[in-house]
Amino acid sequence: MRPFDYHRGTGIEDATRAAAQGSFIAGGTNLIDLMKLEVMAPERLVDINRIEELRGIEATDGGGLRIGALVSNTDLANDPRVRRHWPVLSRALLSGATQQLRNKATTGGNLLQRTRCLYFYDRAMPCNKRAPGTGCGAMEGVNRILAVLGTSEHCIATHPSDMAVAMMALGAEVEIVRASGATERLPLDDLYLLPGDTPERETVLAPGDLIAAVILPAPVEGRQAYRKVRDRASYAFALVSVAAVVAVEEGRISRADLAFGGLAPKPWRNRDVEAALVGQSPSEALFDRAADILLEDARGHGDNEFKIPLARRVLKAVLADLTTGAAA
């Protein structure tokens, strides 16, 4: 760990100003590990834990929720409103990490956690994300957990969050306070960047930009599911996960909001998949067609090729689950 300055943020403005040369820290469940390894070495840490405005879960005028960036994964998962109206989010949170980590990890931090790529974590290895221009060690290396969609020739890292996948399916927005003081709202999908030629840039956030909250839109009709496939029963990152909100009216699918984890450098949402489903009667052939669209551009790199057929199977199973018996 490189020596660093520590600044305790007293308010949002103070924090964003201080973080122009540094990193925010909240739960620290990922950042501290990466700092110990010197994979990340911020010159300054701006501690936002004492900033009250970033706490709390409040109902919005629109019938949704505003979730403060500092709300812990545990508190969010257990919020009665979330459990009742957005159960996919609760399920996703509870499938992630361990109880101890969830107690510490925050909503904002969860969105910004770094990839678990083994080459990113090892400073003796090339990694375009950690050290731009050094190459990608994973492409022809051990890449079982890495991405098959949205990759580039420079990076095949996956985003490891479960929470963000559910939020993506729910159409969440992030509330950002820019270093300039301006506040803006952004669809979660627009927060993340694909690796392209600059895998070191993962979001549109500039230094000092702070995620203040996540806004969930009002609950929608439909059944919700979060299905996570992993190597062990707990405390493992998703190989493939699917978050789904699906409704059926008069025998036809009226809503199919879907997002995927473990497949791509960001929580993955493909509106074409949803468009192909909506208005149609549920059937295996339809679900296959949806999977075809989802996986049309999927490309494996050896170890991780199994994710492509696995994603198909999981998507079909989730769709079958959520549409069976829902016709009435």
């Binding site: 083994l118 090892d122 190597d231 062990r232 707990s234 405390y235 493992a236």
Partner: peptide, 12 residues
């Protein structure tokens, strides 16, 4: 490559 307990999966 997987020299940590997050990616070397002992049973939980």
């Amino acid at each position: 490559a997987n020299h940590n307990l997050a990616e070397y999966h002992i049973p939980v």
